[in-house]
Amino acid sequence: MLRRMFYQRLIRPLLFLLPAEAAHVCGALAMRLLTSLPGLAERTRRALAPSDPALVTHALGRDLPSPVGLAAGFDKDARLFDAALALGFGFVEVGTVTAVPQPGNDRPRLARLPGDRALLNRFGFNNAGAAAAGRALAARDPARGVVGANIGKSKVAPLDAAAADYRHSARAVAPHADFLVVNVSSPNTPGLRSLQDPESLRPILDAVVEAAPELPVLLKVAPDLLDGEVDALVDLALDLGLAGMIATNTTIDRGMLRDRAAADAAFEGGGISGAPLNARSLAVLRRIRARAGDRLLLVASGGIETAQDAWERVRAGATLLEVYTAFVYHGPLFAHRLGAELAALARAQGYARVQEAVGTEPVAAAR
């Protein structure tokens, strides 16, 4: 409790004096320092890495120490995953990476919306490229934890060449990743979300699966899809034998915000993450489960802040959970604390392990 108050009353106010992207850079530097000082990462890992048997989750062909993972977008270039695992995350999704290096959109491209406990970003897949991410992943110690790679379309790649672009990225990172995520749902690359149409998406997914036949491949979807569009993507994922789906990416719906003026004052466009996304992401998760049952691994992402939020996603069918914005607002101990509280909640409900509660919420028929 004292450590949480120290972050919220001292560290976070200081970081929030900086522009949002500058604060992120400072946080990233602190995480890299954690893994570069001899012994510090190991001491942190002993203190914070998941060790509660109630959190052990079998997914992606492995036993993960916790279902709580770090979502893509935080560790864009695969430099922070060791630190994130030491801080209590059960797995990390790096990226989004693209086939060619790209600077992303012009700044400002990240804004805090504290009145909504949200972030607004229009980064545009700024990253050093899939080859660089592959090299970084190749240097990791797989025994330290599960790390997947999120791949997206290069801005310079025409839409009709998207399959080849995704294939290139998949081949670069697949030999060194534990799973792959296909991102066609970011709102910050022109035309990208049009690739969520099943006819356009099928060749992309075929290309990724062909490039990484040994790895679980998951599809990350937008929260702004209509129910019928969600159903069509579920059917495609099942038809192609994908391992699972992630619900959801960021939303472009500023109507979800209580303080819309703050977003409008920041910049045009971009995607919103954090608390406002909670209800819609949960609704999409429930829709996917209603369509797929237990035939897909479901990963919940978007608006998870509390153990109760996480528990609701688990009961709705999510085996794994991903956070990002809450990590920014609640600090470096967040993953450890969320895992501990989720384990306690599971035990209070009569479960020996969190995974035993996956999908125990009655399924509503999809209409």
Rank of each mutant, 00 (worst) to 15 (best):
R144W: 02
V173L: 07
G191S: 13
G191K: 09
V173S: 02
I151K: 00
A143W: 04
G148S: 09
P190C: 08
A174S: 12
L195T: 08
L159I: 12
N183W: 05
T189W: 01
V147R: 06
S185K: 02
R193H: 10
D197M: 07
V181F: 03
Y166G: 10
G145S: 11
V184K: 09
A177V: 06
E199R: 14
V182A: 04
A161W: 12
G145N: 10
Y166K: 10
D197C: 02
Y166T: 09
S154W: 04
L159W: 09
A164P: 03
R171L: 15
R193P: 05
K153V: 05
Q196L: 12
A157V: 11
H168C: 11
F179I: 04
P158L: 09
G191A: 07
S186D: 11
S200H: 15
A177R: 09
P198N: 11
A174L: 05
A157I: 05
V173P: 00
V146R: 00
N183S: 12
R171E: 15
L201S: 02
V182E: 00
K153L: 13
A149T: 08
D165R: 05
A161S: 14
Y166W: 07
A157D: 00
V184Q: 12
S194P: 01
K153M: 08
A161T: 13
L201Q: 00
P187E: 05
L180W: 00
A162V: 06
P158M: 10
V146A: 04
P175C: 14
A143L: 10
A170W: 03
A143Y: 03
L192V: 01
V147E: 13
R167E: 15
L180C: 06
A164D: 15
A174C: 09
P158N: 11
P158D: 10
N150W: 00
A149W: 00
G191L: 07
L201E: 01
H176P: 01
H176E: 13
A164Y: 12
L192H: 02
S194R: 15
T189N: 03
G145W: 05
G152W: 08
D178L: 04
P198T: 02
I151D: 00
A163G: 10
D197G: 08
V156S: 15
P175H: 13
Q196M: 13
G148V: 03
V146G: 01
D160W: 11
A170M: 11
G191I: 07
A174G: 02
D178P: 02
V156A: 15
N183Y: 07
I151E: 01
L159E: 14
G148M: 01
S185G: 06
V181Q: 03
G191N: 12
R167F: 05
S194A: 15
Y166Q: 09
L180A: 03
D165Y: 02
L195E: 07
F179V: 03
A164T: 12
I151L: 14
S154P: 13
